[in-house]
Design a protein around this nucleic acid. Structure first.
Lengths: 138, 138
DNA sequence: TGTCGTTGTAATTGATAAAGTTACAACTAA
DNA sequence: TTAGTTGTAACTTTATCAATTACAACGACA
């Protein structure tokens, strides 16, 4: 099992909000049309992005907009906003404490894998919404 | 969703094989006792490690051993051996091709995320079984 | 003020994958 | 031949994602 598609869907949504800002009314229905997912999925993700302070959503009237400059929104922000469990690797529970290896596995491996995790996160942090927008043709 | 616990279980198994080499007969039952999982799970993972050329398993008589020096077995080797789908992130299918953003999402985002993936893999590659063994107390 | 379009959210369903377990054929040494 | 082990297949349980239905709450505007 690996991460859900929420990060890529969320990135898609943010790119749409930026691209169509001022041109279209950015309702969950409209966004769902571009991403091609259910509007409720859009509303859920938009809710998480809102909670993380990345977007503003107008309740009632409808429409979403960015809460920050595109250069200030990184993929790590999006990742942390939408992913419930951000841990890359999982440990099996209850290794045998009688065994010298079983006793040490979690701390030893955990330390090494934490380095892998942070390498990934630093890389995600280096990518901004602005970077992504530069790949969209007018 | 994220990666399964197969990587950590496989690492645990390899550490056990190294640690108990020459001291114990390393059957799937014995290994399962240290990891605290079902012996069949051990046999399945051992089969993948064997296919990847990391271990040797004696059919019939029983017992597993390393096929390479611990300094030549990296966590990336183990990762690729046991994980069926190594892609970190997933895309939603069928974005709307009529939309300029929907049309470009996959190539643009895909290129950036490939960089994240390879950052993770390079880091996994830098960790060897020998490194892990040095954390086990005698 | 009341209607309409929209958001926020809960509940249900179906699909997919992981992990545990049972069962048994195939293999090897003694 | 027998005992112990590996290699697999099949089934079960559990968990999560994503789609969907349903509906209350909200806000602009006729």
């Amino acid at each position: 099992m690996r991460y859900s598609s929420r990060l890529t869907v969320a990135a898609h949504i943010l790119m749409c909000i930026r691209y169509f800002h001022g041109k279209e009314k950015l309702t969950s229905d409209f966004l769902a049309g571009s991403v091609n997912v259910n509007p409720v999925v859009v509303r859920n993700i938009l809710g998480k992005l809102k909670k993380a302070g990345l977007v503003k959503v107008e309740a009632g009237i409808g429409g979403a907009s960015l809460a920050r400059d595109p250069a200030d929104i990184t993929l790590l922000d999006v990742f942390n906003a939408v992913e419930t469990d951000t841990d890359l690797f999982h440990f099996h529970e209850n290794p045998n404490p009688e065994c010298p290896v079983g006793r040490s596995v979690h701390p030893v491996l955990g330390e090494q894998l934490a380095g892998v995790q942070s390498a990934m996160e630093r890389h995600l942090e280096s990518i901004t919404l602005k970077d992504l927008m530069s790949g969209i043709s007018e």
